[in-house]
């Protein structure tokens, strides 16, 4: 776009509107965790558009929805009390228990609904692989909280990408496909994710700021050259 409308502001605006496609959206959400400028740009768009909310209708929820929320609260509060009683929580009991409660809630929130969309937590990976002289970047690609589904190791000089599946789950009759995402450019496929480690080549234009995303595709991979299925894992590179 024009000089005074940079890519970040356009991305942030489209993120807030909701018009980014699934891979762009997941990649931008991952960037928000890392990039304060991106967070400011999103906050500015939220502010600009905030008064639109007033024009919407209200719809009273069914009583069952609050019942389910309250049940989740109670379940987690119970667990937190148990945690507080255990030896691990004897110091600073109440405060720690509260933190435990929130963390457990985080887990419960993810587990409580089939709709929990991939969380984009990025684990800083302590890789013990041979680093050599080259700057090596790694991404632990996961769905937040779990152990990484996939470790990706990139040598920016040789542009070699090593993909090591750790705990990926492939739905039957489908394939998992790995994408390099550098919005606003279209995502590029690196290939399918199997059960064994694979050596791949970084696509042109990909670099330290690339986000990796894994989507569920028809068996053999996307037929369109673009991700078509839901993104199940994503992560960004960090320096090893």
């Amino acid at each position: 776009m024009s000089d005074d409308f940079d890519d970040l502001d356009a991305l942030a605006g489209e993120y807030v509107l909701g018009t980014l496609d699934v891979v762009e959206r997941v990649a931008f959400a991952a960037r928000l965790d890392e990039d304060p400028d991106a967070r400011s740009a999103v906050a500015a768009w939220e502010r600009r558009l905030a008064s639109l909310a007033a024009a919407g209708d209200e719809v009273a929820p069914s009583a069952a929805t609050w019942t389910r929320i309250a049940a989740s609260l109670r379940a987690v509060a119970g667990e937190a009390v148990d945690a507080a009683k255990s030896a691990a929580w004897t110091q600073n009991g109440p405060q720690r228990a509260m933190i435990a409660s929130r963390n457990r809630w985080r887990a419960a929130a993810a587990a409580s609904t089939m709709l929990a969309v991939v969380a984009l937590a990025l684990a800083v990976a302590g890789s013990h692989l041979d680093v050599g002289r080259h700057p090596i970047l790694v991404a632990a690609v996961n769905r937040g909280g779990d152990k990484p589904a996939l470790m990706i190791r990139v040598d920016l000089v040789t542009r070699r990408v090593t993909v090591r599946p750790v705990a990926t789950t492939t739905p039957s009759g489908h394939s998992l496909e790995l994408w390099a995402v550098n919005a606003p450019a279209a995502p590029r496929s690196l290939g399918l994710v199997g059960t064994t480690p694979a050596d791949l080549t970084m696509p042109a234009g990909a670099g330290a700021d690339t986000t990796f995303a894994v989507s569920v595709e028809p068996e053999g991979g996307s037929k369109t050259g673009k991700p078509t299925g839901p993104v199940v894992y994503a992560g960004q590179l960090v320096e090893d």
């Binding site: 909701g18 909310a53 919407g56 209708d57 209200e58 719809v59 009273a60 929820p61 069914s62 069952a64 929805t65 389910r68 929320i69 989740s72 929130a109 409580s112 609904t113 089939m114 709709l115 929990a116």
Partner: peptide, 23 residues
């Protein structure tokens, strides 16, 4: 009620909208 209105307007599916509201 306001938030469910927002979610339902976008999803156009009441059961899913209530699940999202819970989340």
């Amino acid at each position: 009620p306001k938030l469910l209105g927002t979610i339902l307007r976008m999803l156009k599916n009441r059961p899913v909208a209530e699940e999202v509201l819970q989340d």
